[in-house]
Simulated assay, not measured.
Amino acid sequence: MISGVPVTSEELNEFEKHRTRLFGIAYRLLGSASEAEDAVQDTFLRWNDAEHAAVREPVAWLTRALTNLCLTRLASARVRRESYVGPWLPEPVITEDAALGPLDTVEQRESVSMAFLVLLERLTPPERAVFVLREAFQYSHREIADILGLTEGNCQQLHHRARERVGRDRSPFTASPDATRRIAQRFLDAARGLDVAGLESLLAADVVSWSDGGGKAQAARRPVFGSDRVARLLAGWVRKGGPDVTATMVEVNGQPAILGFLAGRLTLAVSLDIADGRVAAVHAVANPDKLAFLAAQLAPSR
């Protein structure tokens, strides 16, 4: 039983078989783990009420239902984000356990990175849906047209337009996962030691730091540019917490990230974009609402 709705074992097993994939699609479309969970749950409720004998391909049916639910949510999300306090960043998700599906390739890891999800905010909901389904999940234009109820030609146009909008500022991953982890570990060691010079040496000269407090946690409301200023900002976060601050490194959104805890409570998730041996961008989420999903992921291990 899910949310009090009785289901047959066959229906439940069929849905659970595709749950991770559905969540991965919803998260890429919405940039919010909590909203993605809601969309997946709503998809299940529709699946539970469906005439299953008439469904030839359950995964196609589920993907169509989920995507259209997400398109409805995206329209209202765009309105809310226009009044968001300070920079808006996606909700961070630990990806070491394949919570967003396989991230074996550079393209798969890029598709869930914080920077890339921010770029997707430029797209209209239909453009985003076509782009995510095509780029991250390799659906054909014909399949996407069936999912969205559009013509194949229209989907091709939407995809082309989305690639142009995203491509202008797209920075594909260039470093290997092992190399990024080594740099991230050095970054963590320097932060723990309040080594401003060490932090600065790991930052690109034109590094930019984005902070999302959402008006609910202290955070810079504008981006901070330059290695010296970003290094001081990062060291200041650690220094301000005093001896009660602890930190650990995990993989978040396919990238190395530093999680900060104050008296054992998760208060900060800092994702690092690493290129050419340096940290090129920092995305720091302090909004407690946006840390709730990640904190729940940590709960069993902590």
Rank of each mutant, 00 (worst) to 15 (best):
S34N: 10
T267V: 14
F225L: 08
F225R: 11
G149C: 03
G213L: 05
V196K: 00
F116M: 09
V238G: 08
R46H: 11
L203C: 14
V279H: 15
F137K: 05
A145H: 03
H52Q: 13
N154W: 05
E10N: 13
G167L: 09
E51R: 14
I274G: 11
D276F: 12
K290E: 05
Y27E: 06
A65R: 12
R302H: 04
R232P: 02
V93A: 07
E91C: 00
G153H: 08
G254A: 09
H283G: 06
K216N: 00
A269K: 06
F116I: 04
V250R: 13
D189G: 12
A263M: 04
D212T: 00
F116V: 09
A205E: 14
Q156K: 11
L29Q: 03
D38N: 06
G24M: 04
A296N: 11
P300C: 01
F187Y: 15
L266F: 02
Y139H: 04
T63Y: 03
R21E: 08
G236R: 14
L234A: 15
R109D: 06
P6C: 13
E110W: 06
D212G: 09
L120N: 12
R28P: 00
D97K: 07
L133Y: 04
W210N: 08
T151C: 02
A77F: 05
L71H: 01
D42T: 06
A191R: 15
E110C: 08
L202C: 09
E127H: 12
L202F: 14
D228G: 09
A129Q: 04
R265G: 01
L12W: 10
Y27M: 06
T20H: 03
R170F: 11
F293Q: 02
D104C: 01
R56P: 00
D212W: 10
P58W: 12
A220M: 08
L123K: 08
A115V: 06
V196G: 14
L120W: 07
N154T: 07
G193L: 04
V59G: 02
T63F: 01
W210T: 05
V55D: 04
R73F: 05
R239F: 11
F173E: 05
H283Q: 12
V230G: 14
I94N: 09
A98D: 11
V118N: 03
